[in-house]
Structure formats: C-alpha cells, structure tokens
Design a binder for these strands. Structure first.
Lengths: 211, 211
DNA sequence: CTAAAAATACCTGAATGGAGGTAGTGCATC
DNA sequence: GATGCACTACCTCCATTCAGGTATTTTTAG
C-alpha cells in the first residue's frame, strides 16, 4: 500500500485529490495537513511514500519546507503542487530535494503517472513545466536555481517599489536618503541581472521575492 | 433537488467540490464542463439552480461568460470562483449578473452557506472578499465596477510596458513615434487614474487587463 | 455621409530613473 | 584585528518618464 500525504491549505485541492484517487486500490491518503508546522510535526513520526506539497502555504514558503523535510527524511518522494507555472521555481525546487512538479490543473492520469514515476526514482515534471525548463537549459547555462539572497533592507525597498512608490517617496518612508534608496535599487538590479524597474519586479515575482 | 453546474477547467476543483457535496442529499452536480463554449451549449438546453463559475477559463473571460449566460438565463444563481482575492473584480462580476463570490480556499461550510444564501436571493461574498469590498465603499464613491475600456493599441502598449520595454523601444517595436507611445501611456494612466508606471501595471493586473 | 472615437505626431519642462562611480560606519565571524 | 557584509550617503551624466498641452489623420459606428 502506497501511503500518501497532502500538504495544502485548500480543502478543495485535498478533496479533489482524494476524488482522483478514490478508485485506486493501491493508494491511501494517510494524512492531510494545511500548514508547514503540522506537516513537520506529522513527519517527525511518520514516513509517507509520497508527499504532495503546495508551494503556497500560509506559514512557510513551500520551497523552504521541502528543504526542512529533507534534513530528516530522504526517502519520501516530494511532489510540488502549484497553480501557476513558474519555470524559475522548478530547478530550485529540485535542488531542495523535490522529486516532481505538478500543476493544479492536472488531469487524474497525470497525477497517477507522476506518483508512479517518482516512486521509480525518476523526476516527474508537469508537461508544460518540463518544456519551460528545457527552454531555459537551451539558453546558455542560465544560472538556474541561483536565486539571489536579498538583505532585509533590499526587500523593504523592493516591496515599496512594487507598491508604485518613487525613489524619493521610499526615502521618506524609510527615513533614509534618496541616494541610499537608489543604491539599494542598483544592488537589486545587479543581483537579479536586469536593467529596469519593470523587469526587476517581474523577476522578483517569479522568484517569489515579493508577497 | 438542487441542481448544480460546475464550469472550471481544473479537474481538481471539480473533484474537490464533488467531495464537499457528496454527503449533501439535497444537492446534485448535474453537469461539469471545462470551457465557456461547452457551458453555453449545455445552458442552451438546461437551467441548473446554481452555477459555479471559475473566472479563469481558458477560452473566455469568466466575467464575459457570466454576461453571456444572463442574456438568456436569469434564474440560475451564478457564483464566481477564483483563487486570488481581487477586490476590484467583485463589483464588476455582480454587475454582470453574478450572485456570489467564493475563494477557492473555502471550507466545505462556506460553500454550503453560499449555496443556501444565493438560493434565497441574497448575494454571498466570501468573507475576505466582502471586507475588501467594504474597504472600497468606505473610500469615496470609488467608481467601483467602472472598469475602463482600453483600445487595441492601448492594450498593445500596455503589454509591452509590462514586459519591461521602455517608451522608445516600444516605438521601434510598433513602428510608431515614441511620442505616440507616450500619448497612449498617458491615456492609459488617465483611464486607470494612476500616476506612474508601476501603479499602472499593478492596477492593470488587478483589472485583468494583462495576460 | 458624418460625427465620434482611436490612433497618430509633436512640443516643453520638471521629475525620476539608470549607469557609473567613491566612501564611511557598524557588526559579525573568523 | 582583519576581512567581509550590510547599510548608509554622496556625486555626475544622460535617458526616460510624467504632466501639461495641441493637432492631424484614420477608423468606426450610427
């Protein structure tokens, strides 16, 4: 019997998965939690065969949770669930010890196929996701997974920039000189390798550096 | 027997809803389609009591579909389903003849409550959604639901702006003068009542004017 | 056909953004 | 106690954006 665990705060998703699997005799949904904290607690005493992990959890980034799980558990196969296809996330997720990536618009067959693939030790990527990843590989080395680390201050500035504030306005807001704001912005642009604000915000969203 | 119809391209969602309702004797999922075209076809010959409508359909904007449905059917209660809480959408959806608004992270109880409310002729708004709507009402008249109509060219410019191109670059791209691009941008900013590019793109996303 | 809407082009001046620096201070870790 | 990092601040120069116009030509709809 294959024991399956679902980590997702959407009852709808958990229900949908249960529905998809209800006629599969070999599969059992062993546990169903809605937060990272609950997940870690359960996993401290259990080892499911498959973990379906929503990347958008309320209390912790799914990516980090995957890393946390891997510190003590290297046997469960972890499959990420997301609603949008964010290609830059995939490689990162795999680096954190993930085994597969599914989009929430999947069909029943895709779910079953993903489960059987990862159990065989293979990596399963949702079709659309896989294509996007390949696109990246074909373009140079592309520095995949190299998600830049931002400092506290940089994140603050980034958030305010995203809200549509101008440099001087941010300066007022943070009680610093507008020169300093420009420096932070410059560093951000350099770290993310872009050359204007729109691209900065675009990439930031992709890398989940913004709420 | 209350007949329910689901319009959603995510099998997961349909399955989840089925799961939530499976122990409700008075409710029956009469039909389950994944595209606007199928929906209109089914509705040309049937009149379910409740329609659960995903606002993010592949072939048509859910908002417009709601309007289409209302041209020939004014009795079915239509409840919108979305994953993100976009407050500016709600009032618009109600104007198009919608009866309720549910977030996909709802609990079973919320779904049941929404169904019973709209059947009584009331408007049901997902708690979080309702609060946001109230926020808007408290701020002046706020011109809710007055979603600006953009011209073809304005949309093109908007899309390119979102991609991070500068004015001059867009000019090259569209084979027009950069002055013209600026004019379009100015008109866009005026229509959406903002005063810089970041805010323009932000609002545009909220109003679903961008892919 | 005609009026309205959309698309086009142009101008100016002030403000902001972007690329390129330099440099001091505090803090941690090594 | 030195090296590195984060944060801070400042400067210049040029490109772009923004706010305020005006105005002609195409489309579109009635």
């Amino acid at each position: 019997m294959i024991r399956l665990m679902i980590i997702d705060d959407h009852p709808l998703v958990a229900g949908g998965i249960a529905m998809m699997l209800k006629d599969e005799p070999g599969l059992l949904i062993a546990e169903n939690v809605t937060t990272a904290a609950e997940a870690l607690f359960y996993l401290s005493e259990n080892t499911p065969d498959i973990i379906l992990l929503d990347l958008n959890l309320p209390d912790m980034d799914g990516m980090r949770l995957c890393g946390e799980i891997r510190k003590t558990n290297s046997v469960s196969r972890i499959i990420a669930l997301t609603s949008t296809n964010e290609s830059s996330i995939i490689a990162q997720f795999l680096k954190f010890g993930g085994n597969g990536y599914l989009l929430k618009n999947m069909e029943r067959e895709e779910l079953l196929s993903a489960v059987s693939q990862v159990l065989k030790g293979k990596i399963y990527l949702s079709t659309a996701a896989g294509e996007k990843l390949l696109e990246q590989f074909t373009g140079v080395d592309a520095a995949i997974g190299a998600v830049p680390v931002l400092t506290r201050r940089e994140k603050e500035v980034l958030t305010l920039l995203d809200k549509g504030l101008t440099g001087p306005q941010i300066a007022e807001n943070l009680f610093i000189s507008h020169y300093t704001v420009e420096t932070h912005r410059k560093n951000l642009m350099q770290k993310l390798n872009v050359n204007n604000l729109q691209q900065l915000l675009r990439i930031s969203r992709e890398y989940r550096l913004l709420g």
